[in-house]
């Protein structure tokens, strides 16, 4: 049997992760509610996400849902338990290229990194990929180079 994950979200009470998926045999889109048990505002969201992903009852459905996505949904549930708004949670994930991430505390930084992980995982070449090459070299020196606008307001250091 094979399922294709379409969309996922949360339900606050009882705390659950919700998945819409397509059953590849019947072509029907269905909704699956997966209650998150033993999860409090003190719980480790990354462990909880892993537990859910490996849960024998759910894992077939969650196979192509990235771990980082499940972590995010757990963070939203945890924020809610702490009385924080959904808007707050969503804003904490948003990547603003001008934001100075040096200023964030561990938790805030982990959220941004979690967001970055989506692209990272997508572009990642893994060791067990059949076409994996350890030493990939590419020479960019020869292409005609435009001056980088980041250098424009150049100061002494540049």
């Amino acid at each position: 049997m094979s399922y294709e994950a379409k969309r996922c979200g949360v339900q606050f009470s009882p705390p659950s992760i919700v998945l819409f998926y397509e059953d590849k045999e019947t072509k029907h889109v269905r909704k699956r509610v997966m209650p998150v048990r033993n999860f409090s505002k003190y719980s480790d969201y990354s462990m909880a996400a892993e537990r859910l992903k490996n849960n024998p009852r759910h894992r077939d459905y969650l196979e192509n849902v990235p771990q980082s996505q499940l972590e995010k949904l757990h963070i939203i549930l945890r924020d809610h338990m702490e009385g924080l708004s959904l808007e707050h949670s969503l804003a904490s994930f948003r990547l603003d290229p001008d934001e100075d991430l040096n200023k964030l505390d561990d938790d805030e930084l982990a959220r941004k990194k979690g967001q970055m992980d989506e692209l990272f995982e997508k572009n990642r070449r893994r060791k067990d990929d059949p076409d994996f090459v350890y030493d990939v070299e590419m020479d960019f020196g020869k292409t005609t180079q435009e001056k980088c606008s980041w250098d424009e307001e150049s100061d002494d250091g540049f």
Partner: peptide, 12 residues
């Protein structure tokens, strides 16, 4: 120019 994700020029 490197990428930790796809490995470009990291080892070099």
């Amino acid at each position: 120019f490197v990428s930790a994700a796809d490995g470009t020029n990291v080892v070099k």
